Amino acid sequence: MEQTTPSIISPDIPADAQKQVSTLKLGVLASGSGTNFEALVQAIADGKLRAEIPILIYNKPGAAVAARAQRWGIPAMLIDHRKYQSREAFDFDIAQTLSQYGVEWVVMAGWMRRITEVLLDRYPDRIINIHPSLLPSFPGLHAVEQALKSGVKITGCTVHIARLTVDSGPILIQAAVPILPNDTPETLHARIQVQEHEIFPRGIQIAAMQAR
């Protein structure tokens, strides 16, 4: 029988890892529905991630993630990228806002914008991204579709430190997801998302442990 159980690829984390780091102040950037954002909020509520989220920034008016933030009582701010003449100016205002809320780590939870040196220099090695493939395979847009078209049997998701080159930074944790014979982009993406919600808070915890 074909193996269909996802596997998580991660460095060992001490059982008392949560007690070894202070409460992280996370600023979340999101562009869409916000399922990964809500997974982080739930992990915090469940005591699986020792953190707080003082601010969510989203860049698309009407993005569903804003409603999720409202339900959890988390401040959400729209910073519309279409109103800026450059990516650098956009990132400058994001960095200023994050600083005003005392953010220590930046988490890109479905953030569909390339970041610049402006944000990277403000938060060196403290910007974390999640991507729906086993990097370095299938970086960039449409990763799920890329995997299906390639004919590979396994794909997955990756939490990594962000760098200027898209999806190129140091890997924190990955989860492998087998591709089934009848998979469509929708069915495969749904199974990958389940694993994203599992590894995202763990990846943040790993990054905090490594930064100690």
Rank of each mutant, 00 (worst) to 15 (best):
C157V: 12
T158W: 01
W105F: 11
K149C: 11
M108A: 12
L172M: 07
T116C: 12
E145M: 13
R126F: 03
G169S: 11
G151Q: 08
P136F: 15
S168F: 11
G169C: 03
W105P: 02
E145F: 07
G110R: 01
A143P: 01
A162Q: 00
V103N: 01
V106P: 03
N129H: 04
A175S: 14
P132N: 09
F138K: 01
H160V: 12
G140L: 10
Q146T: 07
M108K: 11
A143G: 03
G102Y: 12
P124E: 09
V166Q: 06
P124H: 05
P124A: 07
S137V: 08
W111G: 02
R113F: 06
Q174L: 07
N129W: 11
I130P: 00
Q146E: 09
P132V: 06
I171H: 07
G169W: 00
I173N: 02
L164I: 14
I130S: 02
E117P: 06
V106A: 00
Y101D: 02
E117W: 11
I154T: 08
R163S: 15
E117D: 15
V152E: 13
T116S: 15
R126W: 02
P139C: 12
P136H: 12
L148D: 04
E145Q: 14
H142E: 13
S133T: 05
A175I: 04
G156N: 01
C157M: 10
S133G: 08
D125W: 13
V159G: 08
L141C: 08
K149Y: 02
P170Q: 15
A109W: 03
W111Q: 07
I171K: 08
T165N: 10
D125E: 15
T158L: 09
C157R: 01
I161P: 00
S137G: 10
I173S: 00
V103S: 04
L148R: 04
S168V: 01
R114A: 15
I127M: 04
R122W: 04
E117V: 11
V159K: 02
I128W: 09
L135H: 01
D167A: 11
H160I: 07
V106L: 02
D121K: 06
P139G: 10
S137Q: 14
A109Y: 07
L172H: 00
L164P: 03
R114V: 15
Y101C: 09
I128V: 14
V118T: 15
G156Y: 00
